[in-house]
Amino acid sequence: MKKVKSLADLKKMKEQLQSRIALREKSEHPDGIIQVKVAMATCGIASGAKDVMDFFITNLEKRNIDAIVSQTGCMGYCYAEPTIEVRLPGQDPVVYGFVDLKKADEIIEKYIKQGELVDGIIPVNYKTID
């Protein structure tokens, strides 16, 4: 049983709990925020996309980076699974292939934090319609 004994307690709890609904609040204005989409079709999951997605969810939160992580369908690069798409605010999305946990860590540290492109980019060869 958690007791909230003071205002400081209340503020601390709010901070800890914020992430529970942050996704819902952020999704109202997705353009201003970092978006990571993990391809989670059968091939992606078979190659470990679930672990990669969990890694992004926990680590982005741990490293205090405001982002929306969501799963998406097959992007078509089945040879390069797991694949992810990262969209920084105001920039074109970048697709990375063969993303394992090590690569995921590198993407967070270099690309998401500093905007530095890292190896493993798949040139996007499609356009999508909305």
Binding site: L7, L10, K11, M13, K14, Q18, I21, E25
Partner: peptide, 16 residues
């Protein structure tokens, strides 16, 4: 917890 995350009881904290 979800109410607390949505700024719940913050007004109460402030007022008290």
């Amino acid at each position: 917890d979800e109410y607390l995350a949505a700024d719940g009881y913050a007004a109460l904290g402030k007022v008290l």
